[in-house]
Design a binder for these strands. Structure first.
Length: 900
RNA sequence: GGGCGCGUAGCUCAGUGGGAGAGCGCUCGCCUCACACGCGAGAGGUCGCUGGUUCGAAACCAGCCGCGCCCACCA
């Protein structure tokens, strides 16, 4: 870490600082510079093909978690590439008011203070939430800046701000007028803790071990009646019938009979309905229309009454007679007990079934008949289905299409009213006679009877109602704005597959209904971020990773790269600290590679490449490899088919394995040499290669590349930023000839290095080689390179080596290298080392033999351990044999004729 | 009940018809003048199992086993 107090971005440039790359010293300043230069801001009439993405708005009071980090890393990479390609690109940021989630958080705060929202009253409560939004609402957007997200901050939107609220009322009223929004008394999911209705997808289904209880309902005349099976005995208090299948012979005679409902003494009929599965339980089902969706449907068909037995809090009400006042689970126990006492509890067996829970608080939901507002989704869904089937919207990856369509085809009407306070109040007013007036602005009088004393509906809208409008409301709808005309439909929606139903489906339905086009062409579904073992992150499991902690310690680029490196469409992304650390090392490698370049470029700027005949083999090789890298990255980052792991991996390998390990090492010959012309050539090649590499890497790692690019190119920032530079064009055809020749060199270098390592030849010891090779004409010009890369004192080529005494042979695919051993290998030292190794290996063999010779061990130790010992012994025996052979060879050398 | 994904080195993963690979971890040798957040060398795999297609299968097909996820109003 440097202790520079107030460095300008240039001050931290690589040639001016020592030590590793320090992200903290540059990131903030670079971000400020980009924003103040307006690089992320776009106007509708800016030049270029329109390209737009709207952020999946995070909860306004939330903070950035790794899932956001992944999503924003992807979107930002996409945006930056689009911008570099000259598109008129805009990324609209913003937040969601997140109705129930936010209200729950604030209610919890109040609870900690010992008050409830009802103590405060509606006005004061909402004011309190707004105040909390002011305090915490900017946080997540600030955190996005730390990641480098290139949002157009002048376009920040909020699902509950005034422009969005106006759009919500417009949509609600229009749909109401079209008959697509209605108020009705229907069975909904009720959360007894949040005290509100929920839509179907806000309910999670969890397999729960429960019981199946068999209850006997006698006939009114005291006959045996019917035995029904139920997982919820307490709901029998609300039963209004028993149903059997019409073809069920067992009950043929009972259909039409009247039963006496135990405990409440209600007379209920036995009815026949196709919905009953004769194979389940006893084939007879109790019908509780007020608390079960199936039963409700049956009741509708048969005109049965509904008896609601619960209060809002899921406590039995007066309809439950003597059980009134009991909470539902207490009531379950009490009902079972009472039935048992009357001999009507036939039996109870364990039974696992799915139980619905509130996705916001985990409480078991209560199906319940209730007056709520609904969207009649069938016609809207039909249009959405048609759009997907016609390919106007595509999913990446494609496999998400089918479940999405299946979901749309099986939709029930969407319950949109919520009995909470934080959200868009439903624009419906009631007069004392119960007439409903739905209006864009508060009406003066009832539209039906002219009554002036109106009260507004108390409920608010499902938070997804307003986010469904996001892709067009952020551009000013319902006004016909230039932004809307230019940027709608948005180019692509980048979001997790987990909210395709919550959000994507609703945006599609609303977008198609209210605008001429779909809201996005492509839905790019990323996966979920998981821990290093692929496990879901959860607070209770203690494996939650904090993205900002990573940004602090490793830099934003490192986090982004670590995420993108493991990211392919639809696949979950594992993340561990080591991956981020590895990405930080990569940034540092890049930093240092360019530091070397800056120290040797003498101010050479990227520009025209030298003529081809001036280029050395390694120049042609690196340019060809760069072109390969460019083509792969270009392809892998093309809209809709994002193979981020491929792009990241390709850039990583080119930078590290090719540029740093080979090209820079090879280039040193000329960079440090005294041939001015040759130096100029390599400088110009290097400057250009670095320029293109930094451009390609910029969408993934914006900060380090920007810093380095300014140093390489001499750009001063602001408008002259990498963030505003052009995406690299093709360098032309690959040079396969140069690649093949360089590969030849790499093979020879590899073999000689292996020889050096095996024989413990110190790096400082240079040795000569004589090469006999079928590729002499190709390799001969590369002799200086070979010498540099391996550390050779001399490279000779020969048709054949006549006198091989005192030399050893290194074989490579197209020939052999002869290395004299005198002065190269420390024969005495090698012998010493090998003898020591041999001693120790023999010791291991003896140790194992001793152990295995002990009958106590062989007989009593677990077979597994004994076997392991045998394997060990065999392994060491092989090592001994090998060492003995090596020693024998060396002894020949020691005793042989002295090398000339 | 329906659907989807995954099973490749110790761990996490890439690889979709012709060389079994990467990062981390591990072993050995090096502070070589960009980088020890580094350099060089290396060990390690019956590509879940069975069968099929093919000249050739980690990859394509079928079945099976195992893990994970999503959807679902059989009480």
């Amino acid at each position: 870490m440097t202790d520079v107090v107030d460095p300008a971005p240039q001050a931290a440039a690589p040639h001016a600082t020592a030590g590793p790359y320090d992200p903290a010293a540059v990131e903030h300043l670079l971000y400020e510079d980009w924003v103040s230069a307006g690089l992320f801001h776009a106007e509708a009439d800016d030049p270029g093909e329109p390209f737009s993405i709207v952020i999946p708005p995070p909860n306004v009071t939330g903070s950035l978690h790794v899932g956001h980090a992944l999503e924003h890393a992807i979107i930002d990479a996409v945006m930056r590439r689009a911008r570099m390609e000259g598109k008129n690109a805009v990324w609209v940021p913003g937040t969601d008011h997140a109705g129930i989630a936010t209200q729950n958080v604030v209610e919890q705060q109040l609870a900690d203070e010992g008050v409830s929202r009802h103590d405060l009253g509606r006005e004061a409560f909402i004011e309190r939430v707004w105040r909390w939004r002011e305090e915490s609402g900017g946080l997540i957007l600030q955190q996005m800046r730390r990641l480098g997200a290139s949002c157009d901050w002048e376009r920040e939107a909020f699902t509950f701000d005034e422009p969005r609220s106006r759009a919500v009322r417009e949509v609600f009223v229009t749909l109401y007028e079209e008959g697509l929004i209605y108020r009705g008394n229907r069975l909904i999911n009720w959360c007894p803790r949040c005290l509100t209705a929920l839509s179907d997808i806000e309910v999670d289904h969890e397999d729960t071990v429960g019981e199946l209880a068999y209850l006997r309902y006698p006939t009114v005349d005291g006959g045996d009646g019917v035995v029904v099976a139920t997982t919820r005995p307490e709901t029998m208090l609300g039963d209004t019938a028993v149903a059997v299948h019409p073809d069920d012979e067992r009950y043929r005679l009972l259909v039409g009979a009247t039963l006496r409902l135990p405990l409440v003494d209600r007379e209920i009929p036995v009815i026949a309905d196709d919905a009953v599965d004769p194979g389940f339980g006893t084939g007879a089902v109790k019908v509780t229309p007020a608390h079960d969706p199936n039963d409700h449907a049956i009741a509708q068909r048969h005109g049965l009454a509904s008896v609601d037995i619960f209060t809002d809090h899921a406590v039995v009400d007066e309809a439950g007679g003597r059980f009134a006042g009991l909470e539902r689970y207490a009531a379950r126990a009490a009902v079972k007990e009472a039935l048992a006492a009357e001999g009507l509890l036939v039996r109870v067996e364990p039974y696992t079934h799915a139980v619905g829970t509130c996705s916001r608080c985990g409480t078991v939901v209560e199906p319940r008949l209730s007056d709520q507002w609904f969207v009649a989704v069938t016609p809207l869904a039909a249009d959405a289905i048609a759009a997907v089937e016609a390919g106007r919207v595509t999913f990446a990856p494609d496999r998400f299409t089918r479940p999405f369509l299946e979901w749309l085809r099986n939709l029930h009407d969407w319950c949109i009213s919520r009995q909470i306070w934080w959200g868009h109040r439903i624009p419906a007013w009631y007069c004392p006679d119960g007439h409903i007036t739905v209006a864009r602005e508060e009406p003066d009088a009832c539209a039906t009877c002219g009554e002036r004393a109106l009260t507004q509906d108390e409920d608010v809208l499902d938070t997804w109602f307003s986010s469904a409008l996001w892709p067009f409301t952020v551009f000013g709808w319902p006004e016909d704005t230039p932004a809307l005309r230019v940027w709608y439909p948005t180019s692509v929606l980048v979001t997790g597959y987990d909210i395709n139903t919550f959000w994507v489906s609703r945006m599609l339905m609303m977008g198609i209904h209210f605008l001429p086009e779909v809201p996005f062409r492509i839905v790019h579904n990323h996966g979920m971020v998981r821990d290093r073992y692929g496990k879901k992150m959860s607070k209770s499991f203690g494996n939650v990773l904090d993205p900002l902690d990573f940004v602090d310690r490793y830099g934003a680029d490192a986090l982004r790269f670590a995420l993108l490196r493991h990211c392919s469409p639809g696949q979950d992304v594992p993340l561990a600290e080591e991956w981020v650390e590895g990405a930080r090392r990569f940034a540092n490698k890049l930093w240092n590679a360019i530091r070397l370049a800056l120290q040797t470029l003498d101010g050479t700027r990227p520009g025209e490449l030298p003529h081809r005949e001036q280029l050395a083999l390694e120049d042609r090789w690196v340019l060809s490899r760069l072109e390969r890298c460019r083509a792969t990255v270009h392809e892998a980052t093309a809209t809709g088919s994002w193979a981020w792991s491929t792009a990241a991996q390709t850039l990583y390998e080119f930078t590290w394995d090719e540029l740093a390990d080979w090209y820079l090492e090879a280039a040193k010959v000329r960079l440090y040499g005294h041939d001015e012309a040759a130096r100029s050539v390599v400088q110009r090649v290097l400057a250009t290669v670095l320029d293109d590499l930094l451009r390609l890497l910029h969408p993934l790692m914006p900060f380090v590349t920007e810093t380095l690019w300014r140093a390489v190119s001499g750009a001063t920032g602001g408008q002259q930023s990498l963030a505003a530079a052009a995406w690299p064009a093709s360098l032309g055809e690959r040079d396969h000839h140069a690649e093949a020749r360089f590969a030849l060199l790499q093979e020879v270098v590899g073999e000689l290095r292996r020889f050096r390592a095996e024989h413990r030849i110190p790096p400082a010891t240079l040795f000569p080689v004589a090469l006999v090779t079928s590729r002499r004409t190709e390799l001969e010009p590369l002799a200086p390179l070979l010498a540099t890369l391996v550390g050779l004192s001399e490279v000779r080529f020969a048709a054949e080596v006549v006198d091989t005494s005192g030399t050893t042979t290194v074989v490579f695919p197209t020939g052999e290298a002869y290395v004299p051993l005198a002065g190269v290998i420390d024969v005495a030292g090698e012998l010493e080392r090998l003898r020591k190794e041999l001693d120790s290996a023999r010791g291991e063999v003896d140790r194992a033999r001793g152990k295995l010779a002990n009958p106590q061990f062989v007989e009593r130790a677990p077979a597994e351990i004994v076997q392991r010992e045998r394997d060990k012994q065999a392994g060491w025996k092989r090592v001994v044999a090998q060492l003995e052979e090596e020693l024998a060879q060396l002894r020949v050398l020691e005793d042989g004729p002295p090398p000339s």
